[in-house]
């Protein structure tokens, strides 16, 4: 059975189409749904297995990125979301979606306390929107979404991606194996906060997190914007080198593994 994916849209979410595309490529059946269609009952959250908050600029980042959209959900869909999480389903937030999920308090979700805000995405340390290519290292054993992944190369594109939490929260996240991705150098060594390897100043180079179950997952970078080899910033170099060695180049990038992991969770 193909898992059904609900890709949330509306009020300035922008990345629903490429998000829908990568899930379909990975073998799911994805559908973009306007938040108002969930609120007024045109669509039912319980019909889906995977819920994704994609990238974008919901409400133009006014009053803090993701805040207004999260308020709309809290005010209208909160019970449905809690039920969704309890029923062994998957949730992801990418970029603006990550900011929304953080504001909803679905991550970190320590001790099942969904709804409590403990992490935040601050303005980038450069105080400017950054669209750059980064390297990520998967760090979590328990995160369903990053299974089998070592390193990935993909873009970031955000103004507020600077992960912040108090030290004890950060310690707890690391101790609980909830850090899904960290920014690293091309050779896999730690970024140690160095710009632009860590593009936003995120605490402990954190690029992605999950809840204690490993099923609710957030990340600031965009795997859905570089699923194809020819999306990469350095494809021309890789291709020329492969050509000289008589090798073929792949069509798909390892970034697709994130979505394939989610899909295969339901086919196990």
């Amino acid at each position: 059975m193909k898992p059904k994916v609900i890709v949330m849209t509306g009020y300035g979410i922008n990345s629903e189409m490429e998000t829908e595309f990568v899930f379909n490529e990975a073998g799911a059946e994805a559908e973009s749904v306007h938040i108002n269609d969930l609120i007024d009952g045109h669509k039912k959250l319980s019909d889906y297995q995977i819920m994704v908050f994609p990238g974008g600029f919901s409400y133009g980042d006014d009053t803090g990125s993701g805040n207004a959209y999260a308020n709309k959900i809290k005010g209208n869909l909160w019970e449905d979301i809690l039920k969704f999480i309890e029923s062994d389903k998957l949730v992801a937030g990418i970029c603006n979606g990550c900011q929304i999920v953080a504001n909803l308090g679905l991550v970190p979700g320590f001790d099942g306390q969904y709804g409590k805000r403990e992490i935040a995405l601050r303005h980038n340390a450069s105080a400017r929107f950054q669209c750059r290519w980064v390297n990520l290292k998967a760090e979590s054993e328990k995160c369903v979404w990053t299974r089998g992944i070592d390193m990935l190369h993909m873009p970031v594109a955000h103004g507020e991606g600077n992960f912040y939490a108090k030290d004890d929260v950060l310690d707890k996240l690391e101790a609980g194996d909830q850090v899904a991705f960290k920014y690293v150098k091309a050779d896999g060594s730690p970024a140690d906060g160095e710009f632009p390897v860590n593009p936003n100043g995120a605490a402990r180079d954190i690029a992605g997190l999950c809840d204690p179950s490993g099923k609710v997952f957030v990340m600031m970078p965009h795997p859905e914007r570089a699923p194809n080899f020819y999306n990469l910033d350095n494809w021309a170099l890789l291709k020329e080198k492969a050509k000289r060695e008589g090798l073929a180049v792949p069509e798909e990038t390892p970034n697709m593994q994130v979505f394939r992991n989610a899909v295969s969770y339901f086919s196990q």
Partner: peptide, 10 residues
């Protein structure tokens, strides 16, 4: 270039 999103839409 870095402050203009040039990767969105895939």
């Amino acid at each position: 270039s870095h402050q203009y999103d040039h990767v969105i839409l895939g």
